[in-house]
Design a protein around this nucleic acid. Structure first.
Lengths: 343, 343
DNA sequence: CTGAAAGCGCTTACAG
DNA sequence: CTGAAAGCGCTTACAG
């Protein structure tokens, strides 16, 4: 088991050339005559040699690994982003270290430290809610490029790739208003989450543009999980003046909300309009199908990977922000209010 | 940007000690007096030094990285597994390289090669369907430990962590039979997928144990996606003798199946019993809630990580198989057949 | 075109 | 207890 690894020295000896020559063959250097190269390649095959990229990286002072920090890989949106990052990175010859912050800044801090130790070429980070300012100063000081993704982060020196959460929420809100709704709740998400802050701002703006007063009782916070929808619905159905529509922080919350409505004997899309956020594939086949603000996780992932790779190649490039439009997908869950036309 | 990295040489110079001493302090070697150690630690803080683990690994001929190969991170089951692997690995001081095979053996092959180049300490692999025998011989020859996960793979030299797919499918089948069903379809999944083969075997065995003849017309293959359920349902509803129950390859298929049934005017759990597989969280809040065979992705992930880490420590340990029991969760989607009691 | 030599940032016997 | 030296597997000027 503990056999010595085959190195270029072994190849050199076997092929009867020097170490340098082997190295140049590996790099497909044009100066090496085909005959020599072929001899070397045969030795490589014969001995079962594999290149040690870490050793090369150490010598070259480069790295072929990038780090990706997300909160929760089980969220399909982040899963899509991860998948796209991995794909683009592989195309460019990078491997990706995946790491979950679980929304804990202290844990994220440790993970960042270990990325430096492992000498990553760059980082894509969806910052945990509560990440302190200057959290990335060490990387900037060390010249390690960072691209922030998904979660807006107030540091103008950093590249960013994300979605137009504000515009998406505003669109969804106006859609509900145009349907005749006047009391529209905003359910779910945690208060300090910058993504929620943007969506909430879009919601406010959507109400405002149509001259509808904002009622704080209609905004409920919670952890954005499938099961939190129940509590969110209850909070808002207890009100004197109930809402007739619910804009949800994300699709998880919306699916939980639809379930809770049914448990209360209400049919989503009929007794209550429901709109989600993210565009998870499942929304297409819920009962009824869920209206949602479609985001593009894969696109954001590949945006982020591109920005990072381009910055690794050109550290002096000015910071870039890439914000993908959102699309409102209207399905059966968002119908007209009952009292508007007796539907 | 291109500043020289701070190294132990810088620390040594700053603290007025030798490189060796710094290295020993970093390793918390007991021989170093507290006074010296403190001086070194202060220099580390003052200069903003970060350990270069790659350099240390090269010298020590070890590695603190493990590779994880999965098919599709967007499948919640694999997302859970990944999350658990990452967590256990971090506890043991390893970083994880995540990579997707997209169910393509050739792509998987390239990824494996690049894991060797990046000098991983070990590998956890959910083998792509169609992975050839001996695909991992190079790793064994190089002494790089591998733990197979989820997908059974016929190589007795390798550790394995997975689920009891056979037992789970048998249990689900018998549950449907006990409810009074006699014509039970098995929908979805691709033919060569070893997980499907096990589940199908459990289905056969469940039928057989109750003396029910197997009808090949009731077994339909497809890519296991949300949308494939529609075609699966159609294939089987065209039959002269329709099924009264559907055991699905996984929850994605089952959710698609429920949607397709509704589109055809049938209510899942009433006109047709439906059972899924995997136990995705969403199954709890579908309408109706979906009966499913609960698997434990996190547990399998941590099993795999444990097996791998233990083998890295003891390469001679005999191969171990860890097979987690499955649990049948009965919900409203699996009711009695209509003709049995007019429900 | 090819080889000898220095060096990436670390560790680890080995002297002193 | 501390330092000088060799070496992990590679790359890259620099001679020849």
């Amino acid at each position: 088991m503990d056999k010595r690894r085959i190195t270029i020295n072994d190849i050199a000896a076997h092929a009867g050339v020097s170490r340098s020559t082997v190295s140049l063959v590996l790099q497909k250097h044009p100066r090496i005559p085909e005959e020599t190269a072929e001899k070397v390649r045969q030795s490589i095959a014969a001995l079962g040699y594999t290149y040690n990229r870490n050793a090369a990286n150490l010598r070259r002072r480069t790295s072929q690994a990038i780090g990706l920090v997300i909160n929760d890989i089980r969220n399909p949106f982040f899963a899509q982003l991860t998948s796209a990052v991995e794909e683009r990175a592989a195309e460019a010859g990078y491997m990706v270290y995946l790491v979950e912050s679980a929304e804990q800044p202290a844990r994220q801090e440790r993970l960042l430290e270990s990325f430096i130790e492992h000498d990553v070429a760059g980082l894509i980070v969806c910052a945990a809610t509560g990440t302190p300012p200057q959290a990335f100063d060490r990387f900037l000081a060390a010249g390690i490029p960072i691209c922030m993704a998904v979660r807006p982060y107030p540091d103008a020196r950093l590249d960013f790739a994300g979605s137009d959460n504000y515009g998406g929420a505003k669109m969804a809100t106006q859609h509900l208003i145009d349907l005749g709704h006047r009391r529209i709740a905003f359910l779910g998400g945690e208060r300090e989450n910058p993504v929620r802050i943007d969506r909430l701002a879009g919601y406010f703006s959507g109400l405002d543009a149509r001259g509808i007063a904002f009622d704080p009782a209609l905004v409920v916070e919670s952890r954005p999980s499938l099961t939190s929808g129940v509590a969110d619905v209850n909070a808002v159905m207890r009100l004197e003046a109930r809402p007739t529509a619910m804009l949800c922080y994300n699709d998880f919350v919306a699916m939980g909300v639809m379930h809770a409505l049914r448990c209360a004997g209400l049919t989503p899309g009929e007794h209550m309009a429901v709109v989600g956020f993210d565009g998870m594939p499942e929304t297409e086949i819920t009962h009824p199908p869920l209206s949602t603000v479609q985001l593009y996780g894969r696109k954001i992932g590949s945006d982020a990977a591109e920005l990072l790779i381009s910055r690794i190649g050109d550290p002096a490039r000015p910071p870039t922000r890439r914000v993908e439009q959102a699309t409102l997908i209207v399905r059966a869950s968002s119908g007209r209010p009952l009292n508007a036309n007796g539907e």
